[in-house]
Amino acid sequence: MVTESDTGSIQVEIIPSRFLLPATAQKLLNEIYGNGGIIRIMIHGPNLPRSVPYGPGRGSPIDENRDLLIEVGGQAFELSVKVGRIRLELESEKYYEGLKAACERALPISFQIRRGKFFHTRQTITDYAKYGKVEDTRILGLIDPKAKQDRLAILSEENVAVHDEER
């Protein structure tokens, strides 16, 4: 029988039953941030292009998708996806119940929350092409392999090592 360590980090996925408006996303993220214990977090959902990507209207601006600024923990950043899923890693098991309660407070709709393994741990070729040799493995699995590196928002006060100048 394998006994899981109760001191290690855990990974959690939160799936609301509907896509969140930016205001609700901000509320939810602030509640999650207030709960504490976050090692890293990923916001996932369909892309919100700033202009029509193809078709006869290609290039027409989509003003509704611009300046979707949200403020989390005192720092503002721009949403580029419709929030449909949040994956995060918590320092330990003890933050899990608080996280559930935070979601219940912030979300006006039903949601699923589950534990599992959602971030990869070993560097892939794509990661190498994007970041070079990754020293800080916390950045692995945070963005879609096809997405550009600017999709990664580093809000931590600590210095996260992302070296790409060598390439």
């Binding site: 509907r18 896509f19 609700t24 369909p46 029509v52 990507p53 209207g57 989509i62 509704e64 709709i109």
Partner: peptide, 26 residues
Amino acid sequence: RGCTVHGHSLRLEENGMQFDMLARTE
């Protein structure tokens, strides 16, 4: 939706609208 038709199998938005990348209806 003449193009960027994405939305049929996606979750609805919080206000009950079908998701539309190009925000054609509000």
